[in-house]
Every structure is written in structure tokens, then in C-alpha cells.
Design a protein around this nucleic acid. Structure first.
Lengths: 206, 206
DNA sequence: CTAAAATCTGATTAATCGATCAGAATTTAG
DNA sequence: CTAAATTCTGATCGATTAATCAGATTTTAG
């Protein structure tokens, strides 16, 4: 009960219930947003009583933290798998861009839920997650910087500022998650192709 | 009273009070975020009673809509002024990037407040502002597209997809507002210089 | 100066929130 | 089969919210 630590053994029922509550949380965040995502709304979508959520999660923060961690981990795994399968720096960067956009296109509800949590949830002392800089171990950010650094060291990429290039790429990728009009104008495959071409020129050394 | 339409004449007191409430709203959003920004919190920072806000604004939505419009208008004016002062497409793009980053650096509280409203406020039927595509007349978006189109028509820029390039630039600029770690690593002047160089290569036709 | 209009406050209302609790229902263990 | 442990619900609690209202105060107009 109230499980949250990874090492705690869970029963089958508790595991299934927690997963069901997680899915209902994603759906609720996608449909009505963080502010209106009350325990009652999540419980309604899960088909259970609101009190049961409090039984399986310590409190609402615990639930949202778990959801954020799971969403971020799944996204990272999907992208990192595909970059690992590519060989050179340029191919890895292409895989990184394509996988990031593809994940957003294939999991719109999860992408929206992730945005909702990141921009709404705050630490106990009021610091918003989107302003948090403790993500020194954000795997996605680290992998992008690693690829860019590798490409420069191998002489495959030209000269550019790593911080600026990394944030420009991240910003462009995230933009596809926010901008509905953009999604309507360009399908994900073409958009990722355009980004690959665009940043290929920005990186230099054809 | 309850004024919101532009054509309504306001008394000096009402105008000053509305401005004072607007400033308190910005400060509240910056300090504690949208979710905790209750009427009582805003009133406390303005040094007035909470009921007085309801007297000068129809409801909380009216207040937030007004704040969003004013913040967006001020930002647009600042950027558009500096792009208008530049001559060619390449110079206009540079001015656009520099002005966007400079505004964020010079008005951190306003930038944060703008983000808070855009990612929290929703229309009556629940559509979040950040997903809204009715900004067909977003002056900043339009100006950027106009510059890029002009540069291509004049042969000053190379071949690229306008939608992808515009959103990549917008994403990179917005990233500086979100990413605290980025702000700590690069000062705004150097970051805008790097972005100018970076996108200059992406656009082509040195 | 005086009456009307505008401005402002404290109190109050109804709704919604997260969380807790006692106890019912179900599952597990021996 | 039986007792213990787990799972689950409905009721309820105190806190917080946006909004309203009567009436006090201040400003404006003549």
C-alpha cells in the first residue's frame, strides 16, 4: 500500500490497479488538462472511487511524479533505442530527430500529458518543473549533446556552439508538440526530414 | 465598471486601478504561478481587497485574457519595431532574433507570466491556449514568415521549407524562456549571436 | 454645498478540492 | 474452511476557491 519505492514488491492487483490509474491520469490530463484533473475526474475515467487512488498513491503529487517519470522514461527509451541503432554522428542525429517527432505523432495523448505535468506541477517549495535545472541527468538532453560533441571531435561536424545548437534542436522538436497549426500543415515524416536537412546545414561539413 | 471593450471610456481611477491590478497579476504569476494565483493572492500584492478585482474585471478569465493580450501586444511591439528598423531580409531576421531574446532577458517576470497564462488558461469549452490555432493573426509569427518569404523571393536565402524553418526558429527562441539551465550557461547576447549564425547557415546563400 | 455616481470593503455563499476514516468486500494463506 | 491481509467504497472533514451583495466611503457634477 502507498507503494512508490521501486524495490517494494507489489501484488498483481496493486500493480494492475496502479497501471490502470496511470492510464486514466494520462487520459484525464489529455482531455481536460492538469488544472481540472481532480482525483474525482481521474477516478471517473478509471471507473473506481476517488479514495482508491489515495490508497495506491500517497497523494496527488506522488501520482503526478510517478506519471511524469514514467512518461519521460518511455519517451527516452524510444528515442535512445533508435539512436543507438544508428552508426555515425550524422546518422545518430537523424535518428534522434526522427524518433522524437515520431513518438509525438504516435503518442499524442502521452505527449500532451507530459506537457501538462511539466508546465503545471511544482515542487513543495513552489518551483515549477519547467524551470527546474536538476535535470543534469536528462537522458535525452545528454544524448543529444553527446552526439553533437562526438561529431565535432570526429571532424564530421563543423564549428558551432554546443549549448546553442542543442537547445535550438530541442526547441524545434518540442515546438511540434505545442503547435497544433504546425501539425496540421506538415505531417511528422516530412517535418522531421525538413529538420534533418535544416540542421544538417546548420551543423556544417556536408 | 466591468470594462473590457476597447471603446468604453474609463475614468482616470478605473484606468489606474486596472493597470495596478495587471501589474500585480504579472508579479503573482511570476512568483507563485497560475495555479496558486488566486484573486486573494493578486489582491494582496496589489494592496486592495479581492472584491475590487471583480469590480474592475468581469471575472478571472477576463483578467487573464486581458493580461495575455497586453503581454503579447507589448512583446510584439518591441520585436516588430526593431525588425522594421532593419533593411534587408538577413538583417531583419537578425533583428528579429536579437529583439526576441533581448525582450526575454530584459523582462523575465513578463516572460514567465506569459508562459504561465498560455500553458494554463483555457477557453470556456476547455481548449488550452497553447493548442489554439486561432492565432492566424499572431503578428510575431506572421512577421517571421514574411521575412523568410521575402528573403527567398529576393534570392537572398536558399531553398528551405518555410513552415519548418519558421517553427524551428520560434522553437529555439522560446526555448530560452523555458530553459533556466540554458540561461545560466549562455548570456542573451551571445545566445542570440549563436542563433543568428546557426540559422544563417540553415537558411543558406551566404 | 449637495446629490448622484463611482469606487471600495468585509462578510457571505455555494462549489470543489485533497485527504481521511470506518467498515464492507474480496483475496490470500495455512 | 477460516482467519488474516488486502483491496475498495461511501461518507465526511476542513480548506480554498471565485463570485456576489449590502452598505460604507470617496469622487464627481452642478
Amino acid at each position: 500500500m502507498k507503494g512508490r519505492d521501486a524495490e517494494e514488491k507489489q501484488t498483481f492487483i496493486a500493480d494492475a490497479r496502479r497501471a490502470q490509474i496511470f492510464e486514466a491520469t494520462i487520459r484525464t490530463l489529455d482531455e481536460i488538462g492538469y488544472i481540472r484533473a481532480s482525483m474525482a475526474q481521474i477516478a471517473k475515467r478509471a471507473g473506481i472511487s476517488a479514495a482508491l487512488i489515495s490508497y495506491h498513491y500517497r497523494d496527488k503529487n506522488d501520482l503526478m511524479d510517478y506519471a511524469l517519470m514514467k512518461l519521460a522514461t518511455d519517451l527516452s527509451s524510444s528515442v535512445l533505442e533508435r539512436t543507438a541503432a544508428a552508426s555515425g554522428p550524422r546518422e545518430k542525429l537523424q535518428a534522434y530527430i526522427e524518433a522524437s517527432i515520431a513518438y509525438q505523432a504516435e503518442n499524442p495523448a502521452r505527449s500532451t500529458a507530459l506537457i501538462e505535468i511539466v508546465f503545471h506541477a511544482r515542487t513543495a517549495d513552489g518551483m515549477p518543473y519547467y524551470k527546474l535545472q536538476d535535470d543534469e541527468d536528462d537522458p535525452l538532453e545528454n544524448e543529444l549533446r553527446r552526439i553533437l560533441r562526438l561529431g565535432q571531435e570526429q571532424g564530421e561536424f563543423g564549428a558551432f556552439d554546443l549549448d546553442a545548437m542543442a537547445s535550438a534542436i530541442r526547441g524545434a522538436l518540442d515546438e511540434y508538440g505545442f503547435n497544433v497549426k504546425l501539425k496540421a500543415r506538415i505531417d511528422p515524416i516530412r517535418f522531421s526530414q525538413e529538420l534533418v536537412d535544416l540542421f544538417s546545414r546548420a551543423i556544417g561539413h556536408r
